[in-house]
Each structure stands twice: as structure tokens, then as C-alpha cells.
Simulated assay, not measured.
Amino acid sequence: MPTNKAAAVDALREAWTRAEVERVEIACGGGIGRTGTALACLAVIDGLPNHEAVDYIRQQYSPRAVETPWQRRFVSRFK
């Protein structure tokens, strides 16, 4: 999980904004836990309710996305 939550939120909001006009890549070592968490947060920024974001990313990206309880909690509290 991010050690600086505010910086993580800012980075994800910037990625979402930049994706309108340029290619943005989201990745981590395995491409599942942290990547899925970031994608779920981007879905929230795009208007999906927090409580639906993890299921949505698991359906659209990977059934294993957002691996840990801490990652799920991060998405559920993301603003």
C-alpha cells in the first residue's frame, strides 16, 4: 500500500486526466494486486461507486485483481 496516500491519490488523478490525451500505463511486479487496485481507483474517479469497483475490475481485467484486504479497503475509501 502507498506510504503516502495523498501522493498516490494525486498520481492516480493525474493518470486519469492524462489518459484523455495520451497513453498511460499502470503496472506493478505481478500486474494483479497493485495494478488492480490502481485500476479500481481509476474506475472510481470515472464515476463507478467504490463498492462496485473491485468486482468491476475483477470482471474486466483479472479475477485475481485487488488481492489483499488492505487493497480492497484502499479502494473502498478512495476519494
Rank of each mutant, 00 (worst) to 15 (best):
P63N: 04
I45R: 11
A7W: 07
T68K: 12
Q71E: 15
Y56G: 04
L42W: 06
I57N: 11
L12V: 01
N50R: 13
R73V: 08
A43P: 08
L12G: 06
A43M: 12
E22P: 06
D46K: 04
C41K: 01
A53V: 01
T68G: 10
G36A: 08
E67A: 15
R18M: 04
E67K: 09
R58Y: 00
A40F: 00
W16E: 11
K5I: 14
D10E: 14
I32D: 05
A38E: 08
G30K: 01
W70K: 14
R23W: 06
I45Q: 02
R77I: 00
A43S: 14
F78N: 07
R34H: 14
A38Y: 02
G47A: 01
T17N: 10
C41R: 06
P49E: 15
E52Y: 05
W16R: 14
E20F: 10
E52L: 12
H51R: 14
R77P: 03
I26N: 11
R23M: 07
G31E: 04
R58K: 12
S62V: 00
I26A: 07
I57S: 07
A43W: 02
R13E: 00
D10Q: 11
W70C: 06
I45L: 11
L12H: 00
T17L: 15
Q60A: 06
T3F: 15
Q59P: 08
K79Y: 06
A65T: 11
V24E: 05
I32K: 00
P2D: 09
N4S: 08
V21R: 15
P49G: 09
I32H: 02
R34L: 12
S76T: 08
F78W: 05
N50Y: 03
V54L: 05
C28I: 05
W70I: 01
A27P: 07
I57Q: 04
A11Y: 06
R23I: 02
L48Q: 14
V24F: 09
G30P: 02
V75Q: 12
V54A: 09
P2Q: 07
H51A: 13
A15N: 12
I26W: 01
E20P: 07
V75W: 10
S76Q: 15
I45W: 07
E25W: 03
T17H: 05
A38F: 02
G33E: 00
I32C: 02
E25A: 13
G29S: 04
T17G: 02
I26T: 14
V9T: 04
W16K: 12
C41L: 09
R77T: 15
V44Y: 00
G33W: 05
R23Q: 08
A19K: 03
Q60D: 01
A38L: 09
